[in-house]
Design a protein around this nucleic acid. Sequence first.
RNA 1: GCGGACGUGGUGGAAUUGGUAUACACAACAGACUUAAAAUCUGUCGCCUAUCAGGCAUGCGGGUUCAAGUCCCGCCGUCCGCACCA
Length: 866
Amino acid sequence: MERYNAAECEPRWQSIWEQKDIFKASEDSSAPKYYVLEMFPYPSGRIHIGHVRNYTMGDVVARYKRAKGFNVLHPMGWDAFGMPAENAAMERGIHPAGWTFDNIAAMRAQLKLMGLSIDWSREIATCHPGYYQHEQAMFLDFLEADLAYRKKSKVNWDPVDHTVLANEQVIDGRGWRSGAVVEQRELSQWFLRISDLSEELIAALDDLERWPEKVRLMQRNWIGKSTGLLMRFRFDAASAESTALPLEVYTTRPDTLFGASFCALSAEHPITRELARSNPELQQFVEECRRVGTSEEEIERAEKKGFDTGLRVVHPFDENWTLPVYVANFILMDYGTGAIFGCPAHDQRDLDFAHAYGLGVVPVVIPQGEDPAAFEVGREAYTGPGRIANSRFLDGMSVDEAKAEVARRLGAEGMGEPQTHYRLRDWGVSRQRYWGCPIPVIHCPDCGIVPVPKADLPVVLPEDVSFDKPGNPLERHPSWKHVSCPQCGAAAERETDTFDTFIDSSWYFTRFCSPRAEGPVDRAAADYWLPVDQYIGGIEHAILHLLYSRFYTRAMHRTGHVGLDEPFDGLFTQGMVVHETYQDKDGNWLSPDEVRITGEGADRSASHVDSGGEVTIGPIEKMSKSRRNTVDPAEIIEQYGADTARWFMLSDSPPERDIEWTDAGIEGASRFVQRLWRAVSQAAELMSAPGQAEPAEMGADGAELRKQAHRALQAVGADIEGLRFNRAVARIYELTNAVNAALPAAAKADAGYRWALREAVEILIVMIGPMMPHLAEECWTRIGHQGLLADVAWPEADEALLAENMVTVAVQVNGKRKGEISYPRGADKAEVESLAMGLDTVIRAMQDKPVKKVIIVPERIVNVVV
RNA sequence: GCGGACGUGGUGGAAUUGGUAUACACAACAGACUUAAAAUCUGUCGCCUAUCAGGCAUGCGGGUUCAAGUCCCGCCGUCCGCACCA
């Protein structure tokens, strides 16, 4: 028998699908629509295994839904702006556009080898003016709708390269190329008003029922709604020159006000700035804070440091109690009022700070069961519930009662009022880079900021740029930025910043609905296709990309471009593809094919293939170039075929979990492909002819095979619907085993059995269709069909064959399994009980002890308690 | 540091609402076929007592329950995100 030849079959079926254009999508009201989308890739040049996993999952859903009669949209595009293209330009002197489009061509070719059911006529690249011009038009609409504005904000500045650095380009506080200590600089930049929608973005999460709960929780925490108190501290006259204005702080813990031992200001707080003007030491401290970096992680991890301003504020409930005022490096100007009061006993950061500066730690919330007089806080702040103590009129109250009481008293004196705050900050969209969408505004010395008239769009990136110097080539371009003001005609300058690439990815799913429309969106197409029914991508995008997309869709709704708020009805976050890492004794990373593994379990060890030198097996990590633990999908597809790679990606590991790439795994998948092909080929000789009606006579064996096939069909359909691909794969293995087992008997079987065999094999082929589409087409032809399997409808499982008449349940004595009984479905409890009590093993386990009770859960379990 | 997840045999994992833990695979081992190897087929396969049985096992330690991989509390380990990587 011939082996299945993937190298020959796969291109053949791919070109047939392409010729017939069967994956081309168009609006069609006669069928329900289904929009499947995988997160589009960055065109790095080669697809990686993570892409194979992501796009295989999406393709299974797309092909399955197609077979279920849906009108499916399954497009592909390129997230094509971004820093790697500029880095390539700097390192290798290649233009970002050329580099990007070459990469796109290479990756498109690789993706096509996977046999995905994609409508390639809708392909888009975000770096193409045909795409980004619409971003510019929409930005003008956003400006008009007051969704965009300018304000100053901080960037990482490399003082040697004179360039703005991304957070990932700052390593240990230094620029990645220059090694210079990075400073913070303030620049005027464009922002989108995402924070105005904080409440709405939180509230709408409740309705995203087909999103993972963890993603909704992460977004909720990220937006960070908090209800608290805006309160004012008077400055102590003895300590301050300008005492007119009180210090405003925002707190979520007014109940701990009597535990306060200091107040702290952000290094950028107006009062700090004022004081620093006449205080060089404070000025120096402020500059030190600036070197911590702009990322929240760095700020939070930095050692808590402060500077005593010498100022003191008066406790709102005690004229004679004053608190020192510090400037501290962990207070963010962007959150609340940029000032806090510190209660060390009940906040970890405040406690660390108090320990560093010898400030008092007075517990005022006492956990239940602790003695207020004896309770002490050590190295860990107590943030749980309890009763208030050491707090005068608040003593004995609960935390919530005390919060309300403090709010009431301060409110009555005009010294505080309740406020709601959100952690979510406005979205800064300006980037000081070339390879992005130009921001369509002009700076005129007389008129100020002037939007580029829509008739003048697009503002196209100039091609003649050089990357021999660091910094933004748009700024030093001789002519591009010099224009005349659209309003007054005077000499003016273009904005040289470009958009954050998150803008590009915040609406590409909308553009896919009408990729060649003259405006940003064809409303009829968008109204038909949106929302995306199933979105699939990495968990690493749980917050930013998905939140920005939710906001951007709302902004497009407000400006009339779309008619909905939530772009993604169903979301699935898949796990990463990981691999062991290997290092030789000099610490060099080795790729998997340079390493030989021996032994197993605790005895596993590794050696170098060529030298035989000792190799250390490192942790299993996300595949990355730097660790050299990558596997090239192109090589895998060439060696085993796309179907094998797809099958392996779907097998075993639950899709939301990380999957470890192993050679054994891909070989196993490859063997299954051959086993299935053999089984189908053998069955083809034995089964009835295609298209015949079920024979009147059906023996017990045939009926049993039919049962197995229909149960598998039922289960696989449900598993694909629930994106439980690994379980679907296990079911398919089972049916394949059943078909294999049925073959010997089929040679001399009756017509009923031969018909049942055909039915089982057809069901098997249909079920592997979405997963291994080329093999499935080949099998479909092999068993005598003329048309394409891709056009065959997913069959309905026969309910009558799914029902099981006998039930088998376990019998436990005191919760331990002692045996099992079988009985007809629907038997009454007394019968079940007597059956269970009659088991030898049960009688032995009971040892004549009196029966306390017998728990019978119908069709589940019997538990005898003695 | 903060927020979110995950942890079951040698390995990947399965296990409806708490109801027979280890389905389905991979690897390994034994046998068949073969001049031989590969492929294929058949069988064994959590651990410990040692046999027609019993005990112990779902990262560790507690708890709730007739019953816990699943629920609760506390640890340990691994991973993801932290706003200019995409």
